[in-house]
Every structure is written in structure tokens, then in C-alpha cells.
Computed example of a mutant assay.
Amino acid sequence: MTLLAVERIKLFTTRSPWWCALAALAVTIGFSALITGTADTGELITVSSAEFGYTFGMAVIVVLAALAVTTEYRFNTIKTTFQAVPNRGAALLAKAGVVGGLAFVIGELAGFGSWGLAKLLKPSGDLALNSTADWINVAGIGVVYAIAAVIALSVGILIRHSAGAISLVLIYNLAVEQLVPLIPKVGNKIHEWMPFNVAHKFLTGTGESNGSRGGEMGPPLSDSPLSPGWALAYFAGIALVLLTISIVVAKRRDA
């Protein structure tokens, strides 16, 4: 608990997490307001369409997570941390727990905030949380944000430079997975197993949260062959593997 308290103090005494948190909420909820507010009178707003802006908020979350560790390397405060806590694995796990916890809270606020605003702007929309799929699409955003934060934190530990880590996680999150299907013959098969595509499968399933007309009324669905439960396990497994690798590397090299 002491390590968690220390990491919490280090994280919240800097400005970047606060600004990133506000930015993530603003872009996610703002996108929901844009989609809902500009919808035609006859267009049905669903839970899935109200939550589609989560991808933009996740881009800010990965920046927050990467900065949480790379700034320590930049200003050499990580050396003080490792001197005070010789067990580097424990220190980095505590940091992952704090950053992941913050990302989870931001995700829950963003998910329910987007849904609530859509409900306010379009009370006639198909926005009732009547099924497990609907609840996952809203409440699951916090889980996805937390896992994405751990992935970005792991990349930050491996690269140690803010610009490099942020560039890598942003380019991958916003561009790489969308371009993979363009690879001839094997592109679509590879895309089915890309981490953030699989995370999208966890949130949207087979389109149940797109309303009574299924996938026809919402944003594009994931092409992952996994069920939502296995999709979450797969996404979490990738984060765990990356975190383990980053901790092993951190233990073997100089701070």
C-alpha cells in the first residue's frame, strides 16, 4: 500500500495527468454530443453510436500512461525511486496499478457521461441499458482504458523517451491497425487478432448494443472471431505479456 500511495502522489502532483484526464473526457463526451446532436430526426441513436468516441479518448489515455513513466526517466527521478525501492518489479507494478486505476475511472466517467448526454439530447433514442451487451458497451470502456494504459506504460518503460513512446503508441492506435487490412491476402486475417480491434469486439460484441436492428444502426463492428469474454482475456493477456517483458528489461539495465 505504501508503494501505491507513493505512486499516486507522484502522479497527481504533476499537471499532465489532470490535463490528459480532462482532454480524454472532453473528446469522448464531446464526440457523443456531436454524433447525437447532428443526427437527423429519423436517425436512431443507439448505445453503441453514443459510445463510439471512446477511441479518441483512448488515444489521450495512452499518452497519459506513457508520460507517467517516461517523464521519470527524463528527469532522472526513476533513479531515486529504484534506490528507495530496490525491487524494481514491485515499484513498476505499483505504477501500473495507479495509472491503470486512473484510466479505469476516466473510462467509466467517459462512458456513462457519453451515454447520459446522448440520453439528454435524444430521449427518443434506443439508449436504454436493457441487456448485458448494453452495459458492457458503456461500463466496459473503463476496463479497456485501464488495459490500454498498462500497454502504453509498458511501452514507455521499454523506450524510456517521451516523444518516442508517445509517437509509437499513438501511431499504432490511430493508424497501424487500420492499415493492416490493406496488406494483400493476409491483411484481414492479421487484423482479426490486432489488440485494439479485439478490444473493440469486447465492447460491441456482435452488434447487440446497436439497437433492435443490430449492426445496421451503429458504427462498424470488430471482425475478431473471439467472443466478448475471450476478447477481453486476449487484450488483457497482451498487456500482461508486455508489462512482464518491460519489468524484466527494467531490472537488467541501468536506470
Rank of each mutant, 00 (worst) to 15 (best):
F235M: 04
A152N: 05
S124V: 15
Q83H: 11
V150Y: 12
A33N: 01
L93Q: 06
V198A: 03
G164R: 08
A233I: 14
P225V: 13
V180C: 10
F104E: 05
R213T: 11
L3I: 09
D254K: 08
P184W: 08
T204P: 12
A50P: 14
F52P: 15
F12L: 14
E108K: 07
V6K: 04
V138W: 00
A24I: 06
A91K: 03
I45V: 14
V144F: 08
T41F: 14
A163C: 11
T132S: 12
F12I: 05
H161Q: 07
V60W: 01
M1Q: 09
V62T: 12
N210I: 10
I151S: 04
V248L: 02
L129F: 12
K201V: 02
L158C: 07
E177P: 05
A139H: 01
T14F: 06
A250Q: 00
V105L: 05
I157F: 02
I45G: 14
L182H: 08
K122G: 01
E7S: 05
G140D: 02
L4Y: 10
L121H: 10
L121D: 10
N137L: 06
S222R: 03
A94M: 13
L3H: 04
A250I: 06
G107F: 05
G164A: 09
G156Y: 12
K185D: 15
N137F: 01
